[in-house]
C-alpha cells in the first residue's frame, strides 16, 4: 500500500507526459473529420476531407513526390549504406572508430546546416534544383542512418563467417552476397525503414534543396499555411499517416509476439 503511494507521483507524471504527447495527434484526427474548414469550431462529423485528398490535384502530386523521393532514396541509401557498413567493419579497430565519428557527424548536425550546405554544393553543380537535387539530398542524409543500423549487427556476427565462406569456395564478392548480407538481413530492413521514415519526415533539408516548383507534402503544407488555398485535406492525410504508422508498428509487434510464442512452444 505504501509502495503504491510512493509510486503514485511517478505514475501521474507518466500519464501526463503521454497525454501531452498524444493530445496534438488527437486534435488532428478530430479536425480531419470536422466538416467545417476552419480549425476553430467542430461543426459536424464528416469524411469529406478524406475524399478531398484524392480530388486536390496539388496535394496528390505532393504526396506522390514525397513517396517517389522516399522510395528511391531509401533504395539507394540502403544499398550504399550496407556496403559502407561492411567496408567499415572490415577495417582495423582504429580506422573503424575514425569512420564511425565521420559517419556520426552528419547524423548529429542540425538539418539547417545540412540543408544549407547541400544547397551551396548543388548551386555549384550544373544541375537545376528540383526533384534530382532533393533526391540526392535525401540519399545523402539517409546513408549514415543505414550505416548506424547495420554496423552493430555486423559486429555481432562470428568474425570467421567470411573466412568460412571463402573456405567453402566463395570468392570475396560471393561471400558478401551469399553469407554476410543474408546474415544481417534484419538490420538492413530496419535501416531501410529508418531511411524511409527520415525521408517522409523531412522538411528543412527538402526546403533548401528543392526548386522549380517541386514540392513534397511538408513543403506543400508550409506553403499553404494561413492561406485561403489551405485545405483540411492535409489533416486527413496526416491522420492516415498516423494510422498507417500505428498499423505498421502493430503488425511488427504482433509478428514478434507470435514468433516468440512459437519459439517457446518448440
Amino acid at each position: 500500500m505504501i509502495d503504491r503511494l510512493k509510486k503514485a507521483p511517478f505514475i501521474m507524471v507518466t500519464a501526463f507526459s503521454y497525454f501531452i504527447i498524444y493530445f496534438p495527434i488527437f486534435v488532428i484526427v478530430l479536425l480531419s473529420v470536422n466538416a467545417s474548414p476552419s480549425g476553430q469550431t467542430f461543426t459536424e462529423f464528416s469524411f469529406v476531407w478524406y475524399k478531398e485528398i484524392f480530388l486536390n490535384e496539388r496535394l496528390l502530386t505532393a504526396i506522390f513526390n514525397t513517396l517517389l523521393v522516399a522510395v528511391i532514396s531509401t533504395a539507394v541509401a540502403t544499398v550504399v549504406g550496407t556496403l559502407t557498413a561492411i567496408g567499415i567493419n572490415s577495417l582495423t579497430k582504429t580506422y573503424r572508430i575514425r569512420f564511425m565519428i565521420l559517419n556520426n557527424v552528419p547524423v548529429i548536425n542540425p538539418d539547417i546546416v545540412t540543408g544549407l550546405s547541400l544547397m551551396l554544393v548543388f548551386s555549384l553543380l550544373p544541375i537545376s534544383f528540383g526533384m534530382p537535387t532533393m533526391l540526392l539530398a535525401h540519399i545523402f542524409f539517409s546513408i549514415p542512418f543505414v550505416v548506424l543500423t547495420v554496423l552493430p549487427k555486423l559486429k555481432e556476427l562470428d568474425p570467421n563467417l567470411m573466412d568460412a565462406a571463402l573456405d567453402l569456395g566463395c570468392n570475396y564478392f560471393e561471400g558478401v552476397v551469399k553469407v554476410i548480407i543474408p546474415s544481417i538481413k534484419t538490420a538492413i530492413i530496419a535501416g531501410a525503414l529508418i531511411a524511409f521514415t527520415m525521408s517522409i519526415d523531412d522538411f528543412v533539408i527538402s526546403y533548401f534543396t528543392t526548386g522549380n516548383g517541386f514540392q513534397n507534402v511538408s513543403i506543400w503544407i508550409y506553403s499553404r499555411l494561413g492561406r485561403r488555398t489551405f485545405s483540411p485535406a492535409v489533416y486527413a492525410y496526416n491522420t492516415l499517416v498516423v494510422f498507417l504508422t500505428i498499423g505498421v508498428l502493430g503488425y511488427i509487434n504482433v509478428n514478434n509476439i507470435i514468433r516468440v510464442k512459437r519459439r517457446s512452444e518448440k
Partner: peptide, 21 residues
C-alpha cells in the same frame, strides 16, 4: 592460391555456421 581455391577445409573456432541457413 586464394583460400577458396585450396583443397583444404576448416572447422572454425565457434564454428562460424551460417546463421540464416
Amino acid at each position: 592460391t586464394p583460400a577458396y581455391q585450396r583443397e583444404i577445409n576448416t572447422v572454425f573456432q565457434n564454428y562460424a555456421l551460417f546463421p540464416h541457413l
